[in-house]
């Protein structure tokens, strides 16, 4: 008969073996249909472009060079690819802008929900949750219908006599930003609310007791305590903004591309898969850097969804 300590050891080993077996399906699916293909993208970025899309299996750094530089057709000299740089700049600019605007609007909204009485709080939270889970395409479409030249804003303004010509909002950077703030706002409000819900309002009372003004209470007490929520929300908004595809392609049109559209272009009409791969890897690298910065800041607490 096995001794108790042998039983304990083999039980522990078996437990860990079982845990690997149990997680195997999820790990394999994600490996095959999410992580693994990323390595193929990395490989493709170092291959030569095929004439009709796809790649030729020979090593080439052309894909990477073309991310930021362009080769002159006549004299082979390299110069900065202004078009690509502009798209990178627009993506970063609009993503940061979107993040900041969602904080500006999301912070008071989350605070508003968190300070509602227990009974109605659920309802307000529910109202934020619905857009969170409704189709991003539909919500982008809703914005598109409002801001286009024949949309309700321009129609009303013209009817009211403020303007004779519709204001061109659609197909501008502003349109993309409005759309992204609109679709990603719930992603900011939910983690903010999660950290505000835990806020101990006796601390606010203590602040007022110690002669703090409303602004001082907000800046010195509330904000520091809900900072983890602000950081989590910023990450949740910044990452999808940077990689946004649907919103800029519907609201930005062909001229105001973001990185997502640039990548699509290389796999479509551009027929430059290595360049598309290299841009994809670059985009992922920027996201990873942002995530690492977040992990550094927020300790080991994980990114929460919903």
């Amino acid at each position: 008969m096995a001794s108790a300590q042998e039983t304990a050891l083999s039980a522990e080993r078996q437990d860990i073996r079982n845990r690997w077996l149990l997680s195997a399906p999820a790990l394999i699916i994600i490996l095959l249909a999410a992580i693994g293909p990323l390595f193929i993208v990395l490989i493709y970025s170092f291959l030569a472009a095929g004439p009709y899309g796809d790649v030729e299996w020979k090593f080439s750094t052309d894909g990477w060079i073309s991310v930021f530089l362009q080769r002159d057709i006549f004299d082979d000299t390299l110069s900065f690819a202004d078009a690509h740089l502009a798209i990178f700049w627009r993506s970063v600019k609009l993503s940061i802008g979107t993040t900041l605007l969602t904080i500006v609007f999301g912070f008071p909204t989350a605070y508003f929900i968190a300070t509602r009485p227990e009974r109605t709080r659920e309802m307000w939270l529910f109202l934020i949750t619905i857009p969170f889970w409704t189709n991003l395409l539909i919500r982008t479409f809703a914005i598109l219908q409002i801001i286009r030249n024949e949309g309700i804003i321009n129609t009303l303004l013209i009817k009211a006599g403020f303007i004779n010509q519709p204001i061109q909002i659609l197909f501008t950077d502003t349109a993309i930003m409005i759309g992204m703030v609109y679709v990603y706002l719930p992603l900011m409000v939910l983690p903010l609310y999660a950290s505000m819900e835990k806020l101990d309002f006796r601390l606010v009372e203590a602040g007022y007791d110690l002669y703090a003004s409303r602004f001082a209470v907000l800046r010195r007490i509330i904000f520091p305590l809900v900072k983890p929520g602000v950081i989590a929300g910023s990450i949740l908004v910044f990452i999808p903004s940077l990689g946004a595809y649907v919103t800029p392609s519907l609201l930005g049109g062909g001229k105001n591309m973001m990185l997502g559209n640039l990548i699509e272009l290389q796999f479509g009409q551009g027929r430059n898969w290595p360049l598309g791969s290299a841009i994809s890897i670059t985009l992922m690298a920027i996201v990873m850097i942002a995530l690492l910065a977040y992990v550094r800041n927020a300790g080991s607490s994980e990114v929460r969804h919903g």
Binding site: L27, L38, P240, L259, I263, S280, V287, V303, H305
Partner: peptide, 23 residues
């Protein structure tokens, strides 16, 4: 395992999309 399972949340969708297209 945590990192692996949550990976699809961390990578921009467009990147996963082209990766799957190639694969």
């Amino acid at each position: 395992k945590y990192a692996f399972i949550n990976q699809p949340l961390m990578v921009p969708e467009i990147v996963t999309a082209v990766a799957l297209l190639i694969f």
